[in-house]
Amino acid sequence: MTPENIKTMDPFMLSSLINTKLRNEFKSLNDLCSHFSLDKKELLERLSQFGYEYYGEINQFR
C-alpha cells in the first residue's frame, strides 16, 4: 500500500483493505499510517468523500 494507491484505489476496496489491516495487524490507524508512510489526514479525507468515517473505539471505518 502506497500513498499513490490511496489516491487511485476504488473506495470500497480501499476501505475493505484498511479495515482488514486494522483488524488483523494494527492496533490503531496511527500505527497503520506510520507503517506504510501514509498521511493520515489524506486517508481520512479520501474515505470521507465516500461516506466512511473512522471509529477509533472499534478501530475501523464505517
Rank of each mutant, 00 (worst) to 15 (best):
residue 1 M to V: 10
residue 1 M to I: 08
residue 1 M to N: 02
residue 1 M to A: 10
residue 1 M to H: 04
residue 2 T to Y: 03
residue 2 T to D: 14
residue 2 T to E: 14
residue 3 P to L: 09
residue 3 P to W: 01
residue 3 P to H: 08
residue 4 E to W: 05
residue 4 E to G: 05
residue 4 E to C: 01
residue 4 E to L: 10
residue 5 N to F: 12
residue 5 N to I: 09
residue 6 I to Q: 03
residue 6 I to P: 01
residue 7 K to S: 11
residue 8 T to E: 15
residue 8 T to Y: 12
residue 9 M to R: 02
residue 9 M to K: 02
residue 11 P to D: 04
residue 11 P to F: 03
residue 11 P to L: 03
residue 12 F to S: 05
residue 12 F to D: 11
residue 13 M to K: 15
residue 13 M to H: 09
residue 13 M to S: 06
residue 13 M to F: 00
residue 14 L to W: 03
residue 15 S to N: 08
residue 15 S to M: 12
residue 15 S to I: 11
residue 15 S to Y: 05
residue 16 S to Q: 13
residue 17 L to W: 04
residue 17 L to Y: 11
residue 17 L to Q: 09
residue 17 L to V: 10
residue 18 I to N: 03
residue 18 I to A: 09
residue 19 N to E: 07
residue 19 N to C: 02
residue 19 N to W: 00
residue 19 N to I: 09
residue 20 T to A: 13
residue 21 K to T: 00
residue 22 L to G: 12
residue 22 L to P: 10
residue 22 L to C: 15
residue 23 R to C: 13
residue 23 R to V: 04
residue 25 E to M: 10
residue 25 E to H: 14
residue 25 E to Y: 14
residue 25 E to C: 13
residue 25 E to F: 13
residue 25 E to I: 06
residue 26 F to K: 00
residue 27 K to L: 15
residue 27 K to F: 13
residue 27 K to W: 12
residue 27 K to D: 15
residue 28 S to R: 09
residue 29 L to H: 03
residue 29 L to Q: 07
residue 29 L to Y: 01
residue 29 L to W: 07
residue 30 N to Q: 15
residue 31 D to T: 00
residue 31 D to G: 07
residue 32 L to I: 05
residue 32 L to S: 01
residue 33 C to Q: 08
residue 34 S to M: 11
residue 35 H to N: 10
residue 35 H to S: 09
residue 36 F to T: 04
residue 37 S to Q: 10
residue 38 L to K: 06
residue 38 L to I: 03
residue 39 D to K: 15
residue 39 D to R: 15
residue 40 K to V: 01
residue 40 K to E: 13
residue 40 K to F: 05
residue 42 E to V: 08
residue 42 E to Q: 12
residue 43 L to C: 04
residue 43 L to T: 04
residue 43 L to P: 04
residue 43 L to G: 01
residue 44 L to T: 07
residue 44 L to G: 06
residue 44 L to D: 04
residue 45 E to K: 11
residue 45 E to R: 11
residue 47 L to W: 03
residue 47 L to H: 01
residue 47 L to C: 00
residue 47 L to F: 01
residue 47 L to Y: 05
residue 47 L to I: 02
residue 48 S to H: 06
residue 48 S to I: 02
residue 48 S to K: 11
residue 51 G to N: 05
residue 51 G to E: 03
residue 51 G to S: 08
residue 51 G to Q: 09
residue 51 G to V: 08
residue 53 E to D: 12
residue 54 Y to H: 03
residue 54 Y to S: 02
residue 56 G to Q: 14
residue 57 E to Q: 06
residue 57 E to M: 01
residue 57 E to Y: 13
residue 58 I to Y: 03
residue 59 N to V: 02
residue 60 Q to K: 15
residue 61 F to H: 01
residue 61 F to V: 05
residue 62 R to P: 08
